[in-house]
Design a protein around this nucleic acid. Sequence first.
DNA 1: CAAAAAAGTTAAGTTAGCTTAACTTAGCGC
DNA 2: GCGCTAAGTTAAGCTAACTTAACTTTTTTG
Lengths: 233, 233
Amino acid sequence: MTARTPSTPPPAEGISRVAEDFLKAIWSATEWGGAPITGKALAERFGTTAANVSDTIRRLTAQGLVSHEPYKPVRLTTAGERHAVAMVRKHRLIESFLVRTLGYSWEEVHDEAENLEHAVSETMIERIDALLGHPDRDPHGDPIPAADGTSPHPEHAVNLTDASPGSYEVTRISDDDPAILRLLAGHGLRPGSMITVGTRDASSSSIPLEYNDGGLASLPSDAAAALWLVGRG
Amino acid sequence: MTARTPSTPPPAEGISRVAEDFLKAIWSATEWGGAPITGKALAERFGTTAANVSDTIRRLTAQGLVSHEPYKPVRLTTAGERHAVAMVRKHRLIESFLVRTLGYSWEEVHDEAENLEHAVSETMIERIDALLGHPDRDPHGDPIPAADGTSPHPEHAVNLTDASPGSYEVTRISDDDPAILRLLAGHGLRPGSMITVGTRDASSSSIPLEYNDGGLASLPSDAAAALWLVGRG
DNA sequence: CAAAAAAGTTAAGTTAGCTTAACTTAGCGC
DNA sequence: GCGCTAAGTTAAGCTAACTTAACTTTTTTG
Ligand SMILES: [Mn+2]
Ligand SMILES: [Mn+2]
Ligand SMILES: [Mn+2]
Ligand SMILES: [Mn+2]
């Protein structure tokens, strides 16, 4: 066996499942204009401890995938961002594939994709992409990065939480929380739905909506935060 | 944290990827009438050391999945066999799915399935099974165990290495070695092919074949060992 | 601004899975 | 049966990923 000099960077054998999920989470935090993610948020996202997050961030830093100053939020390096975008591409293509070929509903694909994204080969991803005709949105309305890492930049969307009264089209629905997805699906809301945002009642945190067909509803603010809209006059 | 009594069996949280592959390998050794597998064979199969195999077998034994006396071959317990058959079912259904829906060729599916089998949910496997119409053979001719663990017992097959001269149908082709699969595919041999086995030349270890269409070929013995036949006249 | 709370780090310990090295056992060949 | 060799085990040590506990830094807040 060839002795390995301790100072030599790790052989970059491949990137672990945990590392892949971290990179994706760090990237996702800023996808819709949010601030760089904190250790606390990462710990909550993965149901683990702050100590474990520090440890994992240290390993990712050693691999040159993230940059991190103590007590500051975490950022991706160029290499880290490349890997992150590749994972997002896999995740969203897999979701699209499951809906199209296996009849998954758009509120159940996320968990399955969360596992499969770490197991599919590049070859398989490109075949899925070709079979689906190179889609540019996943079932939740999220843009699918191209194989070269470029992202189709979607029309500027506003969060329902920040939307002033008026007519909108739902362009994306965050797939983070399955319970919220089921709630929204129950309201008939999906990417492409047309809605009218009403005037907020100061005494309540929920947001009044009117649907195309005249139906009325009121969404709690956590569900509203999952909806992204573009104005439709 | 609740203290765990040392004698309590492990919580069977879930079964690791390494454990799943070991169970599958142990089961596969006896699928076509072979002897229970040895540690040496397991080490070769996974490209690891005998020491690591001993270690892994120890863990599997502690989990109640295999039974093992020192210096003896490894056997599955009832629980181990149940898990092994479930993995084989996943592997073969995934191979079938990749061929059918993504246009994989039967000589390239194995490696992809080797990874995906650890990532797909029960739900996804059952949907694949339904989509494919509950197939009972995979692309290599291997029987696909049913969801309840029962295996369709195929017509008794003989290995080409042991076949006396005569007419046969190829019923299965072992998918262990990709190089051999490519060689056989190059000869036009696949499950369902009809062949005539010629008389062996004592001076050579290769086996003479005649195809349906009159073509002649001669297979080296390692390739011949991958072919399983049933007599046809 | 100082104290309290929240966030982050460090330290120590665990397990699975791997390595190399040293040793033991089993199965012959003679 | 004796001794060689192949197979198997044991020992020691490593990394990634996790835990709890103790501590430090930053942020909030009265
Ligand atoms: Mn994931
Ligand atoms: Mn999605
Ligand atoms: Mn596998
Ligand atoms: Mn197969």
